[in-house]
Design a protein around this nucleic acid. Structure first.
Lengths: 164, 164
DNA sequence: TCAAACTCGGACATGATGAATCCGAGTTAA
DNA sequence: TTAACTCGGATTCATCATGTCCGAGTTTGA
């Protein structure tokens, strides 16, 4: 969402400073977004990350699947094929009833995430704070380029910042 | 679902034998179902677990929330309140846009699970295998009561049965 | 042309959560 | 009264997510 406001490549370290989180860890997830072709990484001295598509064409589901993986959250262990009443393997070609239920719920979850785009999220925050927050962020990204040698240091991230 | 077919209390060990899984571990989750008031535990010599409600009134969501907990799967870490562009706490009374999106998806997931009952699942399996599977299971539960001392031993559960 | 500095990328420790287990308290049936 | 069998909570272990590090590659400026 921040990259929406940026006009030039933004380094991972800059994003981490903005959010007050670990730079190396944020980089890890940005790599996932890069693998998923959501952002394009440009290397070199003034490199960073850029969106590959307009924010209207990036859904929340795209982001979640990029970092969590596209595989469904429920995996069946086929206990129906175990124990004294085990069903024969040839009768277990299709997923079981419980699996079908979980898969259906999973689809509903993904469908809901597919409905909202990054652009939608940007508009939502603007409405929440009744100010052009993304514009201010864009300013901060452009400015605050510390002169050579002196780099603005972000405060230490609070321990135990369990994120998702 | 198995308890649907049973007419008498079923011990956790018996259920574990039927499914070919660890008895002690299955017991742990049955305790969760007991805490959630989905099953009632009767102690003593011929004790076990019994459903507290007719299977039509138990949804898949009830079971999932009983074992996973009712709290939403997404927790916000409030990174908007951190870093140089941190939003003031008084502006953060309501959940942020991303959190709202995740919560909405979570609701959709739970709604899908709420639509299917344990009774539905039982009918589904009967249809899947074109046989009264639950009836056969009920028979196995009633019979196969090994004479004193000799207890039918289930095969060792395959290692790495990662379940959900 | 060259060199230096800055970028991303994948490989490496650590901590927390879930998986699997054990033994004790309580109850029932004989 | 006793004895056996049940569930219940406290404990240990493995796995995954979290957090970190250093090397390969590229661009920019001199």
């Amino acid at each position: 969402m921040v990259l929406t406001a940026a006009t030039e490549p933004v380094p991972a370290a800059r994003l981490a400073e903005l959010h007050g989180v670990s730079a190396t860890y944020l980089a890890k997830h940005l790599q996932a977004l890069s693998r998923a072709e959501l952002v394009h990484s440009v290397q070199g001295k003034s490199g960073g990350y850029v969106l590959t598509r307009p924010p209207e064409e990036i859904t929340a589901l795209d982001v979640v699947e990029a970092v969590e993986g596209p595989q469904p959250t429920f995996v069946c262990t086929e206990i129906r094929q175990r124990g004294p009443m085990a069903a024969p393997p040839e009768a277990c070609t299709a997923p079981c009833a419980i699996t079908r239920t979980m898969i259906a719920a999973d689809r509903a979850w993904r469908a809901a995430l597919r409905e909202v785009s990054i652009a939608d999220l940007g508009r939502s925050v603007a409405q929440d704070y009744e100010s052009d927050a993304l514009g201010e962020i864009a300013n901060w990204l452009a400015g605050s380029v510390a002169p050579a040698g002196v780099r603005t240091q972000s405060p230490i991230a609070a321990p135990g910042n369990r994120g998702h």
